[in-house]
Structure formats: C-alpha cells, structure tokens
C-alpha cells in the first residue's frame, strides 16, 4: 500500500527535483521563444500581402495539426537522418525537445495573439499615428500592451498545457519529471509514491503559474476597472 515515508522521500529526492527544474526550464525557454516568434507570426497574419498571410496559415495548420509526440520523435530521430548537422553532440534531447515544442507552441500562440491584436481597435493605431508615432513605437507602446492584456488568460492556458506536454519528451529520454519518476519506478516498483510525488510537483508549479496569472491580469487591467 501507499507508504508515506517513501512518498516524502520521493518528493525530496534530488533526481525528482532536478527533473522538475528541467521541466520548468524547458517550458520557460519554449514559452519565451514562442511568445516572441508567435507575436511576429500573429502580426504577420494581418499583413496586406496575401502570400504572407497564406504562409502564416500554412504554418499554423501544420503545427496545430501534428501531434506533439510525432513532432518530438520526428525532430529527435528524423532530423539526424536529414542532415549531418543534427548528428553532432550539441543535438541533445533538451535541444530536440526545445525545438519540437517551440515549433508547436509558436503555432498556438500565433493564433492567440492574432486575435488579440485584432481586438485592439484600429482607432488606437490611428490615435498614435496622428501624434507622429512610428509603426514600431505604436506596436510596442500602444498595441502590444493592450493585446497582451486580452491574451493573458489564453497565454497562461497555453503555458500550463505546454508544461504538461514536456512530459512527452520522456520518449526521447529527456530527464524531465516523468522520465525521472519512471526510472525510479523501474527499480523500486513503488508506483503510487513516485507518481504521487510527480503529481505534487506538477500541481505546485501550475498553482504558482495560476497565482502569477492573477497578478499579471491585475497589473495589466489598470485603467479597465
């Protein structure tokens, strides 16, 4: 049956803690890169040029359609077959997971941000343009902060979802939370305790993120209360 001391031992074990750090680290890296590139892609979706809009649609279609597991395996196993470059030492499971998950996350965030940008009225850009502000100034100071406020709940959803998707990287032997738990189980057969410990980690991380979301929403909604 469930043994509390083993469970606690599992929670406070170094491998699980390191696994959690890796999970968090990977999620943050992917999210940061995807935010920037997703923002680029999301604003390109409003481009006057049809070819650009078409390219964005194609990208989003492809990487929202492909299962994360497939993309992970494709990047990890497939890319080295395509090019010499990916057979070198730098192409670690972490890099592969980062690449695969970013490709997917960018597509999702582009969609979220595209609609958020569209929700900021044209009048805002005109108001700023009439004051002589440049396009990138308008984007940075006027449009983006307002779009982010609209997008925060969805962005946080995507972040939490991403955090859990990193567990799939266990198939390419990245030593994140789930991989570590399964290693431990393989030698101890203590399913309940180790899965329980991993669950606690996930719940704690997601709770922190949820609190952060409230905080960010609160700050960004100044002026709307």
């Amino acid at each position: 049956m469930f043994q509390l001391d083993l469970f606690l031992q599992a929670i406070f074990s170094a491998p699980l803690f390191k696994g959690a750090l890796l999970t968090i680290g990977l999620s943050i890296c992917v999210m940061a890169v995807s935010l920037v590139l997703g923002m680029g892609l999301g604003s390109m979706a409003g481009s006057p040029r049809r070819s650009v809009r078409w390219l964005v649609t194609l990208y989003v279609w492809l990487f929202r359609g492909a299962p994360a597991l497939l993309v992970l395996l494709f990047v990890w196993n497939g890319l080295p077959q395509i090019s010499e470059v990916f057979r070198a030492g730098w192409f670690t499971p972490f890099v592969a997971a980062f690449l695969a998950l970013s490709l997917i996350q960018i597509a999702y965030l582009a969609e979220v941000l595209r609609s958020a940008f569209a929700a900021v009225g044209r009048g805002q850009q005109e108001g700023a343009a009439a004051l002589g502000m440049h396009r990138w100034q308008i984007f940075l100071v006027i449009t983006m902060p307002q779009a982010l406020r609209i997008a925060v709940p969805s962005l946080m959803n995507e972040f939490i979802s991403l955090l859990k998707t990193t567990s799939l990287a266990t198939v390419i032997s990245l030593k994140e939370l789930m991989t570590v738990s399964q290693f431990a189980i393989a030698t101890s057969f203590r399913f309940l305790e180790w899965y329980g410990a991993a669950l606690v980690y996930y719940l704690v991380i997601v709770s922190v993120l949820t609190l952060a979301q409230y905080r960010i929403e609160h700050v960004l909604s100044r002026g709307y209360r």
């Binding site: 009048g123 805002q124 005109e126 108001g127 700023a128 009439a130 004051l131 002589g132 502000m133 100034q137 100071v141 006027i142 902060p145 307002q146 406020r149 960004l220 100044r222 002026g223 709307y224």
Partner: peptide, 28 residues
C-alpha cells in the same frame, strides 16, 4: 505638426490621462 481629435477620442485606455499626454512627447 498637425494635431487630430477623433469622434471616438481614441485615448489609450491602458495609460493614465497624464501618460496619454506625455507618450508622444517622449517617443516622438
């Protein structure tokens, strides 16, 4: 050099009144 006032004001809702008045002065 040309100021414009719109039917729907087009003030920036995420900035204070003061910031609305300073943002272009500072950036432009």
């Amino acid at each position: 050099d040309v100021g414009m006032v719109f039917q729907h004001f087009n003030l920036f809702p995420h900035l204070t009144v003061l910031e609305n008045c300073t943002v272009a002065q500072r950036w432009v």
